[in-house]
Design a protein around this nucleic acid. Structure first.
Length: 857
RNA sequence: GGGCGCUUAGCUCAGUUGGUUAGAGCGCAGCCUUCACACGGCUGAGGUCGUGGGUUCGAGUCCCGCAGCGCCCACCA
């Protein structure tokens, strides 16, 4: 595997002044040339560790949070690789979908106009403030060009931070294989009746002009106002109704009250008329009507919110739609507004945005004496598309859905069971999945009325009059995928029949980005395209991801896998925490507190950045902390210097005979055991902690104690010097391998000074390598001696003397066992502390008395 | 409205199955030009573990209530 010629420092020398400068570029180039992280597809499934990595959204700059999460599971990947697994570590770029479209619109100053003809070779210069219309195909070309550029930048960041990615496996969510996989999976869903089209009320973003799925909505506190409207009974008496959306009054189809609400009992079953428009509407009852809200009577409009949809559907009410897809009330007067007063009122409302219409109708109502009191401002939660700026409206449209268990208890139960079968890290994240599955209120809406995405691979026949037969979709042939129904005809038709009576039209929509990325295991593992690779990688081992996309990416991946393969897509899920800025606020672009990974690598080094990330526990929010990165950098420098020192003495192969050396190795063996157990439990931060602690005490105590002996003249193959030198070699080799998953650059650098090949392909250390198991190896021995040494240092510091200052007399009172430990390392202790007389006294009251020699002038 | 997580030294955090004087780093103070490291080392000060109860021989660790912070979900008239 390795190509030694590529390796710098093949002479294996220790540099005079080791440095961290330039290690990132140097080792990235070597790893690339040697294929250190390349995936060996000859290995079978049991030998592979496959990671379903989260494709970062390609929309400008790479978020530090992405790097944070990636570094964490990269440490796990590196651990598994060193344990002998062949790690399947692809990266995907999520360049498919709305974020890309928006970035292209802003970057080039264009908008997509699908009615324009395509002009091949058209060059579009960026024009920041423009909104120039371009053809659909030109728009897609711009998306492809810009994402390709961004992806190169992203890859460089990932290389700079030392991710052990198998770059040859890279995919994008819009590339040919992804389109083919997404279309194939959809066609199979369609054939099994798991996907279906439906014309129904849907949540609609009026700016993006597309339908939006439940998973992409969020509530935002929004200022509104209760308007108390005067509806009228037949006897002209008033029924007061509160609404926050008076502009939808024309869309009112009924008034609803709770069946048990005595206040309205005699009204139920009668009709009241709407203010201003005089339209008669029935008074109906429904359990969802809340007597506590407003006056207890609500107007039902088609549609103001999702409760309206429920009422409309369950109470079988008529449809009176007035809001258009652009978020404006229709200009044309609705046919059910028949009175002259109603027509006049509509003149003031039609064509206006809902927001403008709201204040306009409030004025009309007030002028007509139909507004009771003043509007009362309130702050309430309103649904938005998570990327949108204006509240969602509800419009009726034709969309594609995938059955997700919302309307099928059996499927919902199976999905909950899948959540229980997964291993979650940390465990408590599982409930988020369960809540989401339990709370699903509709099938998954996967179609978007956009351009840069995977097209639906279907067409519709046109009848003799040119009407579209939506109920008879013509599916594409699987062998033809990926296809674009806008530019290719369906089987059995010619392109000339497009749009002609008796011909066909292509489905104009594209799939939501989650409909593609929910298939990331199938895309990465080359489902159907490469059955051999698929059999070696699927189902995968680990899905690492952020907590905010449990309801989208995680859930939808489980769903698609269950539908397609009747299996889980992976066995383990690891959820990382948030990145918080130093004020403990979630970092986000809109808050302007984003720090770029590149700047941090430049300042603290990749290993410094990685150290900080790996200190964050799985699922735990972590503050961006440059101080921690400095600590990581300092640790890296210490590794360079300590290693240089150790290598000036170390010699592998000798017998480790001295009790102090064996004690150190015994302690190190317990560190190996603990770090291994932590990694296996996905607790990488604990592995780092236990290793780092040992490393510092190794430097501060063991190296100080042993250096004189190790420097000494060789005293035969089994002598004390050989023992020290062999122990140092063993310890350094072990420590470098323990630290390699966290600090890949500095450990590789040091490894290259004295070892062949990459530390990242070296075997993970085992406790047995360290001569563990011997009963007389007491890890406490080192502690006892280190305590005595610390006491010596403490005295010298207190006396303001140099640490080299001679100790005339050192008296230690302790138990026989601990005195024996000191005696076993007496020579090392005297050398390290520059101790003259050493007196060991048995006693029950332990003490250490240090008498310094007088200072010589 | 429901749920999850967090609350340990000035700051950022560890604290495994409850067990002797609660740990680390940063910061702070003092000391040391030590022949691996001044991009350093050594030493030290600093905490009634959010709050009120309970279980226990023993609780930061388990149970109940409360508060603050963060997040997720919710049909939001």
């Amino acid at each position: 595997m390795s190509a030694p010629d590529q390796r710098p420092n093949k002479a294996r020398t220790v540099p005079e002044r080791p440095s961290l400068e330039g290690l990132e570029a140097k080792w990235d180039a070597v790893w690339e040339a040697e294929g250190t992280y390349r995936f060996d597809r000859r290995r079978d499934r049991a030998e592979v560790y496959a990671i379903d990595t989260p494709p970062p959204t390609v929309s400008g700059s790479l978020h530090l949070g992405t790097v944070f999460g990636y570094v964490q599971f990269d440490s796990i990947a590196r651990f598994r690789r060193m344990c002998g697994k062949e790690v399947f570590f692809p990266v995907g770029w999520d360049d498919n979908g709305l974020p890309t479209e928006r970035r292209v619109q802003n970057h080039y100053g264009v908008r997509c106009d699908p009615t324009l003809p395509y002009q091949p070779g058209l060059v579009v210069d960026p024009q920041p403030d423009g909104r120039r219309p371009v053809a659909r195909r030109t728009f897609i070309e711009l998306c492809e060009a810009l994402t390709a550029e961004d992806e190169r930048t992203f890859e460089q960041v990932f290389r700079d931070v030392g991710l052990s990615v198998a770059w040859e496996l890279t995919y994008t969510t819009i590339n040919e294989r992804s389109r083919r996989v997404a279309q194939r999976a959809f066609l199979r869903n369609l054939a099994r009746n798991e996907a279906y089209p439906s014309e129904a009320p849907t949540m609609w973003d009026v700016d993006f002009q597309t339908a939006v799925a439940q998973a992409e909505m969020e509530d935002r506190p929004t200022t509104g106002a209760y308007h108390r409207l005067a509806f009228h009974r037949a006897d002209r008496s008033v029924v007061e109704i509160d609404t926050t959306r008076p502009e939808l009054l024309a869309a009112c189809v009924a008034v609803v009250v709770h069946p048990s609400d005595a206040r309205w009992r005699e009204l139920v079953g009668t009709e009241v008329t709407t203010p201003l428009f005089g339209v008669p509407v029935p008074v109906v009852t429904h359990d969802l009507a809340d007597p506590e809200k407003g006056t207890g009577a609500a107007m039902i409009c088609t549609f103001g919110d999702s409760t309206d949809v429920v009422w409309w559907r369950e109470l079988d009410l008529p449809l009176r739609s007035v809001v258009q897809r652009d978020g404006r009330l229709q200009a044309e007067r609705p046919e059910w507004l028949t009175s002259e007063a109603a027509a006049r009122a509509w003149d003031a409302l039609g064509g206006r945005t809902t927001k403008a219409a709201r204040s306009a109708i409030a004025e009309l109502l007030a002028a007509a004496g139909e507004l009771v009191g003043e509007p009362r401002p309130i702050e309430h939660e309103v649904k938005y598309y998570e990327r949108g700026d204006r509240p969602l409206e509800i419009v009726t449209s034709r969309q594609w859905y995938i059955r997700n268990g919302a309307r099928d208890p059996q499927r919902r139960g199976a999905l909950l069971e899948a959540g229980r079968a997964l291993s979650w890290h940390p465990e408590f994240m599982r409930v988020r999945y369960e809540h989401w599955v339990g709370g699903l209120n509709g099938d998954w809406l996967i179609s978007r009325q956009r351009y840069f995405g995977v097209p639906f691979p279907v067409w519709y026949p046109l009848d003799a009059e040119g009407n579209v037969a939506h109920d008879e979709p013509i599916p594409a042939d699987e062998a033809s995928l990926p296809i674009d129904p806008q530019s290719e005809p369906p089987p059995g038709y010619t392109e000339a029949q497009r749009g002609q009576p008796g011909g066909f039209v292509g489905d104009p929509d594209v799939m939501d980005t989650w409909a593609t990325s929910s298939l990331s295991p199938e895309i990465a593992c080359a489902w159907e395209d490469d059955p051999d690779l698929f059999s070696r990688t699927f189902p995968m081992d680990l899905r690492p991801q952020g907590p905010e996309i449990i309801r989208t990416w995680l859930f939808s991946t489980v769903l698609r896998s269950q539908l397609e393969h009747a299996s889980l897509p992976w066995t383990d899920v690891s959820i990382n925490g948030w990145i918080l800025d130093p004020d403990r606020k979630k970092m986000s672009k809109s808050k302007g507190n984003v720090i770029t990974p590149t700047a941090l690598v430049a300042e603290h080094g990749a290993d410094g950045l990685r150290y900080w990330a790996c200190r964050g526990a799985p699922g735990t929010d972590t503050a961006v902390d440059p101080a921690q990165m400095r600590v990581g950098r300092r640790l890296s420098i210490k590794i360079l210097n300590a290693s240089k020192f150790v290598l000036s003495m170390a010699a592998a192969g000798g017998q480790v005979t001295e009790p102090l050396d064996r004690s150190m190795l015994a302690r190190l063996a317990s560190v190996v055991t603990a770090a291994t157990a932590a990694f296996e439990a996905y607790q990488y931060h604990q592995a780092l902690d236990v290793t780092e602690s040992f490393f510092w005490s190794f430097c501060d105590d063991y190296l100080e104690l042993v250096k004189s002996r190790a420097y000494g003249e060789a005293a035969g193959p089994a002598g004390p010097t050989e023992s020290a030198r062999a122990a140092l070699a063993l310890a350094l080799s072990t420590l470098l391998r323990l630290l390699a998953p966290f600090l890949p650059f500095v450990t590789e650098e040091v490894w290259s000074w004295w070892q062949d090949g990459s530390v990242h392909r070296a075997a993970w250390p085992g406790a047995d390598e360290l001569g563990g198991g011997a009963d007389d190896d007491d890890p406490v021995l080192l502690d006892v001696v280190a305590e005595a040494l610390a006491a010596v240092r403490r005295t010298k510091t207190a006396e303001k003397r140099s640490l080299r200052a001679p100790v005339a007399r050192l008296e230690i009172v302790d138990t026989p066992a601990r005195l024996a430990a000191v005696r076993a390392a007496e020579g090392d202790l005297r050398q390290a502390g520059n101790v003259g007389e050493l007196v060991l006294v048995e006693g029950t009251d332990p003490s250490i008395v240090v008498e310094l020699a007088p200072e010589v002038a």
